[in-house]
C-alpha cells in the first residue's frame, strides 16, 4: 500500500513539474497576465483609488468580494473549532495545583478541598509549569510593542506590505504569547470567550456591512465610491477610506479567530488549563 502511494505521489509530482515547463518565465513581460491584466492595475490604481500599494487595492477593492469570503472562511474555521472542541459541562477537576508565590511551594488540592484563605496562592496548570521570571517579564515587555506594530501594519497597509490579515494575525499572536507565557486563564481574563466570539462575528459584519451600505447608497456591493457623501471626501478618497474600513474588519475577525482557535485547541475545549 505504501509503495502504491509513493508511486502515485511521485507520478503526480513529475507530471506537475513537467507541466510547469509550459508556464511563462518568472517576470516575463510577454506573458498573458503581464500583457493586459497587470498593466491595467499598475496604471490605473493610483488615479482610481489613491492607494500606493497595488496589492492592497486589488485585494480589498477590485477583488473585495473575494476577500470578504476569505474572511468568512476564517470565521467558519473558528466556529468549526468551537463546535467540535468546546465542552460546556462544568466538571470539577480531580486535583488542582496552587503555587505559594512567596516560597514557591506547590500544594495539591483534591476534589472538594479548600485553599487556605490567603492571596499568596496562584493557580498553576497540572502539566509541567516552571516558574520562569525571565520569560514572563520578556513577554510582558514585548506584547505592547507587538500590538503597536500590528496596528501599524493594519493602518499602513495602504503604503507598505501588510494589511488587515497580517495585522490581525499579529494582534492574535500577542494574546497567544500572553497565554503561553502566563497561562490560558490570564489571557481569557483579559479577553473573555464571549467577547472574543462576538468580535469574530463583528469583523465579518463590518466587512459585509460596508458592502451593504454601498448597496443602500445606490451603488454596487462593495463599491466604496458610494461612501463619498458619508465620509465627506471625493469618490477616489472614499475608495481609499473604504479599503481602510474593510481592513479593520478583517483585522478584528482574524485576531479574534486566532485567539478563539488557540484557546479551544490548547485547552481541548475546557478553557481551564492551556499550553
Amino acid at each position: 500500500m505504501k509503495i502504491t502511494g509513493l508511486i502515485i505521489a511521485v507520478l503526480t509530482g513529475a507530471l506537475l513539474i513537467y507541466a510547469t515547463a509550459d508556464f511563462p518565465a518568472w517576470g516575463d513581460p510577454a506573458s498573458p497576465a503581464s500583457t493586459h491584466v497587470s498593466p491595467r492595475y499598475i496604471e490605473k490604481t493610483i488615479e482610481e483609488t489613491a492607494v500606493p500599494n497595488m496589492v492592497t487595492s486589488v485585494l480589498a477593492d477590485y477583488r473585495g468580494y473575494d476577500t470578504m469570503f476569505e474572511t468568512t472562511v476564517i470565521f467558519s474555521a473558528g466556529v468549526a473549532c468551537f463546535l467540535l472542541l468546546r465542552i460546556f459541562r462544568r466538571e470539577e477537576p480531580e486535583e488542582r495545583l496552587y503555587r505559594h508565590v512567596l516560597t514557591g511551594v506547590t500544594i495539591h488540592v483534591k476534589k472538594g478541598g479548600k485553599l487556605p484563605p490567603s492571596d499568596d496562592f496562584e493557580r498553576i496548570d497540572t502539566e509541567w509549569t516552571p516558574h520562569d521570571l525571565i520569560i514572563k517579564t520578556m513577554c510582558r515587555l514585548l506584547i505592547p510593542f507587538i500590538q503597536l506594530f500590528a496596528l501599524y501594519v493594519i493602518a499602513h497597509g495602504h503604503h507598505s506590505p501588510g494589511g488587515g490579515f497580517q495585522g490581525g494575525v499579529m494582534l492574535g499572536a500577542s494574546v497567544i504569547v500572553l497565554a503561553m507565557s502566563q497561562d490560558l486563564r490570564t489571557a481569557v481574563r483579559r479577553l473573555r470567550e464571549k467577547v472574543d466570539a462576538l468580535l469574530c462575528a463583528t469583523g465579518v459584519f463590518i466587512y459585509a456591512g460596508t458592502g451593504a451600505l454601498c448597496l443602500l447608497l445606490g451603488a454596487d456591493f462593495l463599491n466604496y465610491r458610494a461612501l463619498a457623501p458619508l465620509l465627506n471626501v471625493d469618490p477616489i478618497m472614499a475608495r481609499s477610506h473604504g479599503i481602510f474600513i474593510v481592513e479593520i474588519g478583517v483585522g478584528i475577525a482574524v485576531m479574534a479567530t486566532m485567539i478563539w482557535i488557540y484557546s479551544n485547541v490548547s485547552s481541548s475545549g475546557k478553557y481551564d488549563e492551556g499550553l
Binding site: I261, Y262, V265, L275
Partner: peptide, 12 residues
C-alpha cells in the same frame, strides 16, 4: 500562528 496551533494540537 499555524506552528503554535500544531504544537497545541500535539500537546493535547
Amino acid at each position: 500562528v499555524s506552528t503554535v496551533f500544531f504544537v497545541a494540537a500535539v500537546f493535547r
